[in-house]
């Protein structure tokens, strides 16, 4: 496992990836702000609805909202989007603590990419999207944004934030819920390597009746350590040093504990009715979102 000395590498979303992301929608499984659970969201269009934006026409869209004028000029179909008061509020919480520096690419880079991608999906669908980073507390964050044009803002934020602090998940969640009292869909992108506070933090997040999806990001070597021999392992957040002489038996024990922890977290999430998905940084963000995340139902 490699700890990146810095994650100053800028997050770049591939245009093709963006195009595919634009086809997706974020869905919530819960009743949020009056919207019925399980009811397919649709945008309310009418004269009382404020025009918000265009998007490319996709097969199946309501033809009443095609902009024929643009078609006449450009011979391309574009769909009009209108703002609605009950639009989905999407919050993306990104863990940027020191532990997220691990890996190559670092988990932080990966998490930021995921966060940017999720934000783009929401922005494209005129959801109200905020992106907030946290470490030992809430750090940088955006206000609720709507529309694709705000992707740059989000990217700037994510590129600006540097990892480094220790994780305090509970405190971070407390701070977030205080700032965002209305319920919404919350994506938490983290390595959740704060076993002491994770569950309490998650519970705290649920207080506002949020629909929560936990995106658990780990480096492959965190699941399957490739260490052999004598090591002095230093905790990236606490600085604590553990001296180990790694043996096959020890590796086996580590894996067993890791699996138990992941199972415990997964079961906890299930009990609370939360979504949980695990990914490793050797799975590209594209594959994760387009293949794995859509299975959760949170993205379609």
């Amino acid at each position: 496992m490699v700890i990146s000395t810095s994650d100053k590498k800028n997050i770049i979303l591939d245009p093709d990836f963006l195009r595919r992301l634009a086809r997706l929608k974020i869905e919530t499984r819960k009743i949020l702000g009056g919207v019925m659970k399980g009811e397919k969201r649709s945008k309310k269009y009418g004269t009382s609805v404020e025009f918000a934006d265009y998007r490319d026409y996709h097969r199946g869209d309501d033809l009443r909202y095609l902009d024929w004028n643009i078609y006449a000029r450009l011979e391309r179909f574009f769909l009009k989007l209108f703002q609605e008061e009950e639009d989905l509020t999407v919050h993306v919480l990104v863990d940027t603590s020191a532990s997220m520096q691990a890996g190559d690419p670092s988990k932080a880079i990966y998490a930021k990419k995921l966060a940017a991608a999720l934000a783009y999906i929401g922005l494209t669908n005129l959801d109200r999207v905020s992106v907030t980073t946290f470490q030992n507390d809430i750090k940088e964050g955006t206000q609720l944004l709507r529309g694709r044009a705000h992707l740059a803002t989000i990217l700037d934020l994510l590129n600006k934030v540097e990892s480094g602090e220790k994780t305090d998940f509970l405190k971070s969640m407390k701070s977030f819920t205080l700032r965002h009292r209305s319920s919404g869909l919350v994506f938490v992108v983290s390595d959740f390597l704060d076993p002491v506070n994770v569950k309490e933090g998650i519970k705290r997040l649920k207080y506002n009746n949020n629909d929560i999806l936990l995106l658990h990001v780990l480096d492959r070597t965190e699941l399957e350590p490739d260490l052999r021999g004598d090591w002095a392992l230093t905790d990236s957040e606490t600085g604590d040093v553990v001296e180990v002489s790694v043996s096959p038996r020890l590796i086996s024990d580590y894996k067993r504990r890791m699996v138990a922890y992941l199972d415990d977290l997964r079961n906890f999430a299930r009990k609370l009715g939360l979504g949980y998905v695990l990914t490793t940084t050797d799975v590209t963000p594209e594959d994760f979102i387009l293949k794995k995340l859509v299975v959760t139902g949170f993205v379609k």
Binding site: S99, K107, G229, W231, L233, T234, D235, S236, V244, Y254
Partner: peptide, 20 residues
């Protein structure tokens, strides 16, 4: 000298500490 171990910074020593 043999006891001078190779050093490595990892995300969390939580599980290693538990095992030790």
């Amino acid at each position: 000298l043999r006891l001078q171990r190779k050093k490595k910074i990892i995300a969390s020593t939580f599980f290693w500490t538990e095992m030790i």
